[in-house]
Amino acid sequence: MRFLIAFAAVLGYASASAILPYGLGINAGDAQAAAIDATVAAQDHARAAVEGNLRANEAAVQWNTEAVRQAAETSRDINENAYWNGVAASQNVVAAAQSQAAALNGIAAARAGLWGAPIAPLAPVAAWGAPLAYGGLGIHGAALRAW
């Protein structure tokens, strides 16, 4: 579109400089100078249009580059958050399994203490001491403890 405008401007300047001497009786030197001025003006206009187009293209490239950078940074943040959320979830699963094992050990120790039956706890006997594991009374006088 800009090329068509520049072409129309050149055509207008050229036709005006070609017809003007006949209508006004201008000498050939003045007509030639007017034609040169019109050509230079048209070239300047075309050059300005091309430079404006180049500036617009450069701005578009910079905007696209920034948009791609922001998208990559957002994607990285999402992936990093997902990774750490997965790590936290797996740690929670391990903690829940350890709590369940501790509860089962407590039940086994309590049964061993109340009934006197040799039910072995899931953890090593050394964790409670020999009297508690084999039905003894322990520190508080009972085999049940709240830990």
Rank of each mutant, 00 (worst) to 15 (best):
A146H: 05
F7E: 07
Q32W: 03
G129S: 05
G86N: 11
A127R: 12
A117E: 14
Y13D: 07
A102R: 13
P21E: 00
P21L: 00
W115S: 14
L137Q: 06
P118W: 01
Y134N: 15
L54Q: 10
G116N: 06
G138I: 01
A31Y: 00
W115L: 15
E66Q: 13
Q98D: 09
W147V: 13
D30R: 10
A59Q: 07
A112L: 03
F3S: 10
I139R: 11
S90W: 08
R76M: 11
A31P: 01
A97W: 08
E58M: 09
A102H: 06
E73P: 01
L20R: 12
I5G: 03
A9V: 12
G136T: 02
G113W: 00
A42W: 00
S99C: 03
Q62W: 02
G86T: 10
Q43D: 01
H45V: 08
P124Y: 01
A117R: 06
G29N: 13
G25A: 03
D37Q: 14
W115E: 12
Y134S: 15
Q62S: 06
N64V: 06
N53I: 08
A101L: 15
Q43Y: 11
T65Y: 03
W63L: 12
L122Q: 03
A71R: 14
G23V: 13
L11C: 02
